[in-house]
Write a protein that binds this DNA or RNA. Sequence first.
RNA 1: GGGCGGUUAGCUCAGUUGGGAGAGCACCAGCUCGACAAGCUGGGGGUCACUGGUUCGAGCCCAGUACCGCCCACCA
Length: 805
Amino acid sequence: MEPSYNPWEVEPRWQEAWEAEGLYRAGAGKRRDETFVIAVPPPNVTGALHMGHALNGALQDVLIRWHRMRGFDALWQPGYDHAGISTQNVVEKQLLEEGTSRKEIGREAFVERVWRHLEETGRTIMAQYRRLGASLAYDRERFTMDDAYVEAVMRFFVHSWERGWIYRANRIVNWCPYHETAISDLEVVHAPMDDMLTFASYPFVDGSGSVTVATARPATILADVAVAVHPEDDRYRAIVGKDVVVPFVERRAPVVADDLVDPEFGTGALKVTPGHDPVDFEIGRKHELPTLTVIGPDGRMNEDAGPLAGLTQQEADDAVVAWLEEHGQLERREPYRHNVGTCERCHNRIEPLVSLQWWLTMDEPRKPALAALRERRVRYHPESQHQFAVRSLEDIPDWNVSRQLWWGHQLPIWYCPDGHVTSAWPRPEACAECGSAELVRDPDVLDTWFSSALWPFATLGWPEDTKDLRRYYPGDVNSTAREIIRLWENRMIWTGIELVGDVPFHDVIVHSTVLAPDGRRMSKSLGTGIDPLEIIDEHGADATRYGLLKMSSTQDVRFSVGAVAEGRKLATKLWNVARLILMNAEGAAPDARPQAVEERWILARLDAVRAEVEEAWARFDFAVAVKALFGLTFDDFCDWYAEAIKPRLYEDDPDAAATALAALERLLLLLHPVMPHVTEEIWAQLPARRSRLIVAPWPEPDVRFEGDSDALERVRDAAEIARRSGVLVDLDEDERRIFEAVVRKEQLPVNGSREGEIARLRKEVARSEGMLGNDSFVANAPPDVVEGEREKLRRYRRELDALGG
RNA sequence: GGGCGGUUAGCUCAGUUGGGAGAGCACCAGCUCGACAAGCUGGGGGUCACUGGUUCGAGCCCAGUACCGCCCACCA
């Protein structure tokens, strides 16, 4: 073996070998009929692997590798999302740099351009997942724009249409003036912004004075249709029902009462602009007010803004403020910091605009999903996220599914010259109502998440009744970030139930958010991002996986290189102890036939940790499993077992060699899901290996040594006492042999003294006797706790006795 | 504003029905002994954020306070 472990040479070699040998494919090494399926959350087709992907990849790979070793027919489905607005954004920026625009080159050329861009630079993440050692079924890569996938999306839309779930409505939506499309609430990011709050007085028509309102956007005064006050607000009770004159446009508008108004804010009187504010839209609807629009899709003032038409909002704000000042209706302006909605892709300010969009009602579709969650047929982990998922479904608003983009799935909606609307796929020959053949397709595309929602089954061939769909659906686990629950997870659940007749998976892991080391969010714009590939390059994939799994326990965790370094240490240690055993076991074959105390003990420990790790994997507690494996390797296997058998290995004891190989084999099996590369590399050098470790059978429970797990404890206690006091307590022959192998005489005692140790033990005895002498404790504490305390007291007394205390 | 989570050693974090306060890193001391100096052995270091409560007993349970973070959100 090489004298030192080199992950940079070993890891890529195994990654290539596993894939070339077909061991990443679905069902590789299967020994039973049950399936285990995870569909990877499809990353953006233009994106690069970030820390969240790496963390999520590591923990999904652990589950996949573990089940593969257990003999399941395991499938980890890879692929990409076309990411409508995000991808369109990338290509539009390129066009801008080239001095042109999507509008200039036209839709067809633009879409072609996107495809070309993807061919050149897209689809890089799966290569990066390979570098992490992620055992995805790369031969099955899918893309949400694949022909077959488009079929599924079209079928889903027409199905929803036929169910009567699709409708078109003029509503106020979040409008991105840069992309010129509606986006959903979930795509809006709120950010603090410094504005001015303008106080303007609106005179009453009857000349009886005026009412003052506060606004952050004076330009929208042009679309005001009312002033609203809270019905309980005594200051304004008298003016409800009066009419005011809207400044600038000098339009007559009523004062209405509505409890949506917050009496605490500003003056307690609100100008009502249904065309440009969601709250006002709602007030307008309740009071049957007209909806006026003065801002266009490009964010500028439109033709209804009269003299201000064509101005930017900033310019229009200034013009209106100037008008107010001139007419003595400007009371004051003050600085005002508040949260405003921005587009999550381009960070431009969102414009609430009234617009005609397609919607999917959620009343019906959510019901079976809610039932599935309540009956725990789908379970979110941790439990707090389950509650959140349920609440999200309970409060779910209708889904705006149309986007005014060019990159995406165009709606299968057709208009005839007479205005009839039909939804069909493929393109119908003629209008169903009037027979006209001059059908025009709706230009809008579907929300990206409309297609993502089908991921667990469209990747398996739905709507065709394929062999894969029958075998691998429903899947088992889905793992994702917290903010994706409403965008993706819940939607997969109700579409799965509706379209395929069953939930797509039974467990949803909501993994931790990895923050930058300083506690801030990792983000490109903040410059706080850490590239997981750089971490892999520096420390190796195994170490990175270990570190990420260790960081997966809490809701938010700061990225710590220390955790990765710990993983690297573990890989090196494992490599070295394997070297010790292999160099001294020539000619031996792995055979667990333990005679000696330390052999029974390590095999019992290996089995205890196997059980512990299985339990942790099963409840998705990755950090606990990884910690147990670290302790097993360092403390139990290397520091005690390997040291104890060293003298026997040097003497070419065949039993020691055979058992050591068997124990090492078991250790490698347990570690493989976390550190696949270093374990496979060692496995390949074991004598009489039967298969690759990646498909080797996971160890069965080993009950032979039950009770032997404590066999070494006496030796460890003796070592402790010896180090503290220099006194060797009574040991039998085997125990003495181990003691002498592990504990070096010249180090005894390092410090402390017999007297000090006796004092320490006497203190412990006093504490223990105090507890046991307390009747309340004996009466109220659980019996096993009391018994445990008695056992401790007996041990302290024994040790005191041995020391002559 | 709402929801969720956090506050334990210098740092990053464990602590599983309430009963000995821990790991890794960092630090200090001593070790080239036939796996490993990316190592080995030992050591120092904590008012478990704060206040009150329940209990024989609280890092853990309850109430409140402070600070931090994430997610969500229609205060113009």
